[in-house]
């Protein structure tokens, strides 16, 4: 965690470069074209917003990017590599993690335990040695706990480290998911409607954390959201989709006021 001390304001090398992009992605479901030659680009360490009315193809695009769906045409490029046909867990290993609309925590585990489970390669997870040879994992465990506490501090959950996940609010559960993703080594996080089902006051709190993460830890975010008024001020760049196509992109304000976008929301 030494990198965090005193260097928070320093831009890391490579910030602002494109870390992930799609090239003319096409996805059909039977006769319906869900995605029609979609091109979006995510800049490293920036927050990109994807808006659009229901059925416009947002979730399909997220599924294609995270590997849950394979497109018929086009490519997904991540960190310079073509990942179009890579299975989801391999993308996770590369640092591309997605969260779901409904958080799925380990209910009876504490916040710290929830994050610790995400640690990679813990020798103590071999049940045949864990109880007898504690020395084999103690040091690794301690390092990971330090890391987990720092991540919890970053997402603003450290005061809750000893609470069971079942005692957290909806917003805190989303923060916990982010913490787990970072513990897992994610540097690109795709969030499907993070504000869904959360009280608007907490939404601002959640997005403050997301902004902090992108600025200070250089995490790249792609966020799907309906309620543009609520989250618009936090994002760096926005895409609007309708009927499987990107209809507008650019600065958030510009996209929100684009007549085509307004029209698509009004169903015109």
């Amino acid at each position: 965690m030494s990198e965090s001390i005193g260097t928070l304001r320093l831009q890391r090398k490579g910030d602002g470069e494109y870390v992930l992009w799609t090239e003319n992605v096409v996805k059909r479901f039977g006769g319906i074209i869900a995605l029609n030659k979609v091109n979006i680009k995510l800049r490293k360490g920036k927050i990109t917003l994807l808006i659009g009315p229901n059925g416009s193809g947002k979730t399909t695009l997220v599924n294609v990017i995270s590997g849950f769906l394979t497109p018929e045409e086009g490519k997904v490029i991540y960190k310079g590599k073509d990942i179009t046909r890579l299975p989801p867990h391999d993308r996770v290993k590369m640092g591309l993690v997605r969260t779901f609309q409904i958080p799925k925590p380990f209910q009876n585990l504490t916040v710290l335990e929830n994050v610790m489970v995400a640690a990679e390669g813990n020798p103590g997870e071999n049940p045949y040695i864990a109880a007898i040879f504690r020395g084999k994992w103690k040091k690794f465990e301690r390092e990971q706990v330090e890391k987990a506490f720092n991540i919890l501090k970053w997402v603003g959950l450290v005061h809750k480290w000893d609470s069971k996940a079942s005692d957290l609010s909806g917003g805190q559960l989303k923060l916990l998911e982010i913490a787990r993703a970072i513990m897992k080594g994610a540097d690109t996080i795709i969030m499907d409607e993070p504000a869904a089902g959360i009280n608007p006051v907490l939404v601002h709190d959640l997005f403050d954390r997301i902004v902090k993460l992108s600025r200070e830890r250089h995490v790249t975010f792609l966020i799907i959201e309906h309620r543009i008024g609520l989250v618009g001020k936090y994002v760096d760049y926005a895409y609007a989709m309708n009927m499987g196509e990107v209809i507008s992109e650019g600065e958030p304000e510009k996209v929100f006021n684009d007549p085509k976008v307004l029209e698509s929301y009004l169903g015109g």
């Binding site: 380990f106 103590g124 997870e125």
Partner: peptide, 10 residues
């Protein structure tokens, strides 16, 4: 109280 116990519970 080991990482394995935690993993099983998770």
């Amino acid at each position: 109280n080991s990482p394995s116990g935690r993993l099983f519970r998770a």
